[in-house]
Computed example of a mutant assay.
Amino acid sequence: MAAPAPHGVPSSPEAGSIPPALAEPLRNDLEEVADEVVEAILKHVPEYAGPSTPKLRSVAVEALTLLGDSPVSPEAVHDCAHAARWPVPRQVAVIALATSTDLREETWPLTASDVLVDMESRPPRMLVPDPHNQSHSAGRAFALSLRDRPAAVGPTVSVTQAARSLLWATRALGLMGRGILPRQGVVRCVDHLSTLLLHSDEPLLGELRSHVLAPLDTVSAGQRSRHAETLLAWLLSGSNVPDVAARLHLHPQTVRYRLRRLRQLFGDALDEPDSRLDLILALRAESLREPDSSGQ
């Protein structure tokens, strides 16, 4: 079973776990539920919140990103956009923002008029239209506009799939908080897809790491770190010793010594393609572990 998504964002059912005969009816039911939720949210917005107010724009973001992987119909999108006086874009990206204890509006991000912002949800979020065509989420100016608030930019998706962009942005934000991704600044999911994939099922990742790297359990913590670093560099370099030495700033003879020891520990697994792939995944996960992690 997949690990639950951070910050209470629901994850989709595990791939292959739903019989094909039920998959399409279930998808239709989810779409109907998503549309009903959007309609209910818009219906219960206080009457004093006029169509151009920040409240309605915030509600529009909430409605479009509420149901995890469940899509929202084009009709529901149109209703949200109409209520918020927001031109419907072809594509969007959702930006998940770190929660702050300072709730004053003066601390909120500075945004363009076509960016929808919801600072009341958890995590706070921004819905950016057509991110590939504009500079809303790029460059130093954007980072400054967030007022030093860490943020994760989700993948670009169709507007009906905004919740999926939020799902991955939220997961990236969680990895930022753990130090697996950079804690500060703006992290873009598209720049860290392999890390997000590795950590999409944490228990399974732990099993892979424990099983594949079991030979390293026989060495000291210091040796484990050095051997793991050397082995990953060797695998990624195509078994090129001079390249490993250059990457790690070591003498080639030191690399050869470590590789002889690694041969003793891992044996033929270092030459088998499937085992090498497992080793790369496990060692990559090992290198990304939280700075304060200890033990296995």
Score class of each variant (00 low, 15 high):
277 L>Y: 12
1 M>C: 13
75 E>I: 15
55 K>W: 15
203 P>F: 03
96 A>H: 06
282 A>L: 07
144 L>I: 10
254 T>I: 06
29 D>T: 14
18 I>C: 01
45 V>K: 02
138 A>T: 14
157 V>A: 05
203 P>W: 07
184 Q>N: 05
24 E>A: 15
238 G>H: 03
98 A>D: 08
266 F>E: 01
97 L>C: 14
147 R>A: 07
232 L>E: 08
207 E>R: 10
213 L>R: 10
17 S>W: 12
137 S>G: 11
166 L>R: 14
268 D>W: 00
81 A>H: 13
121 S>E: 13
112 A>C: 10
207 E>L: 11
257 Y>Q: 13
121 S>C: 14
38 V>G: 12
78 H>C: 00
128 V>E: 06
131 P>W: 02
211 H>F: 08
214 A>G: 04
131 P>Y: 05
251 H>T: 02
35 D>K: 01
97 L>F: 10
137 S>T: 14
32 E>F: 04
272 E>C: 00
136 H>D: 03
246 A>V: 05
141 A>F: 02
67 L>Y: 00
145 S>M: 13
196 L>P: 01
106 E>R: 08
50 G>H: 06
11 S>L: 01
65 T>V: 05
103 L>I: 06
191 D>A: 07
252 P>W: 06
266 F>C: 03
31 E>F: 02
34 A>H: 04
54 P>T: 09
158 S>N: 07
54 P>N: 09
70 S>Y: 14
128 V>T: 05
237 S>T: 10
266 F>A: 00
71 P>C: 04
8 G>W: 09
246 A>D: 09
288 L>P: 01
273 P>N: 09
276 R>A: 06
180 I>K: 03
169 A>P: 02
45 V>S: 00
121 S>N: 12
90 R>G: 08
287 S>W: 09
109 P>E: 05
208 L>R: 12
20 P>D: 15
240 N>K: 07
22 L>C: 01
277 L>C: 11
53 T>D: 05
267 G>Y: 08
79 D>A: 12
289 R>P: 00
214 A>D: 10
32 E>D: 10
